[in-house]
Amino acid sequence: MTPSTMLAKTLSPRARLWLKRAGVLFFYLALWAVLARAVDQPLLLPSPTAVLTRLVSLLPTPQSALSLLYTLGRTLWAYLLGIGAAILLCAASCRFSLADALISPLLSAVRATPVTSFIVLALVWLSSARVPVLTGFLMTLPVVYSALTGAVRGIDPKLHEMAKLYGFGALGTLRHVIVPAVLPAFVQSCLASIGLCWKAVVAAEVIGVPKMAVGSRLYESKIYLETDSLLAWTLTIVLLSVALEALLRRLARRVLEVRHE
């Protein structure tokens, strides 16, 4: 038995998973380092060390910290607004057919429209700091809305009959039938839309260049040809996106457990 096989057998499945992930990360970092050395032009492709050094020097500055906070704040604001609006519009759509006739095609059109079209159009109407919120909102809303309306309409009508005969009432039906039935689809759509929202907010910041924004820092890095800085900010965006998704996934697991309590 080789030492690596022995090590694999003594480790817990969780530790093995993390070891595997670390191995994958190491592989890509090594590939990046090899490519950077082969290209040998930091302006085109800086080495991972240069990017990490830049990241460490960038992040502690007040402007970077504020940019991160503002972008994070805009994303969360847009995301929560999008989810809230999706819930309200879904309730209206499922209750009134006229509301459904008005809302559904509009949101389908929003979903099909390229995000840059919204950004450019919104820049005509709003300040550059507000455009990212609107863009993130418009990315979240249709995803959550269509998942919610699909789930509400998919509820077995026999369960509604049962709720009616057993005197659940409107609130009881909402609590015991509708909410638990739509919760998995709702949670999945929330998980799917956080990444979209985050990317849309950063894209709107890159185009609108508000004062405090990660997107603006990206734009400046591009203008000044600071490729290491550009990659450092991109890395920050990716890491934050992964962290946000992981946090939400944990929250989602908890919410789905509560469904059974």
């Binding site: 049962m162 005969l165 057993y166 005197g167 015991h176 638990p180």
Partner: peptide
């Protein structure tokens, strides 16, 4: 009210059997 036993079970799948009965 009317207590109705349906031809199908119509139990709420997200609740335990005890919770389903308790709702009545």
């Amino acid at each position: 009210p009317v207590a109705f036993c349906f031809q199908e079970d119509r139990l709420l799948p997200w609740y335990t059997v005890g919770q389903n009965v308790a709702l009545a």
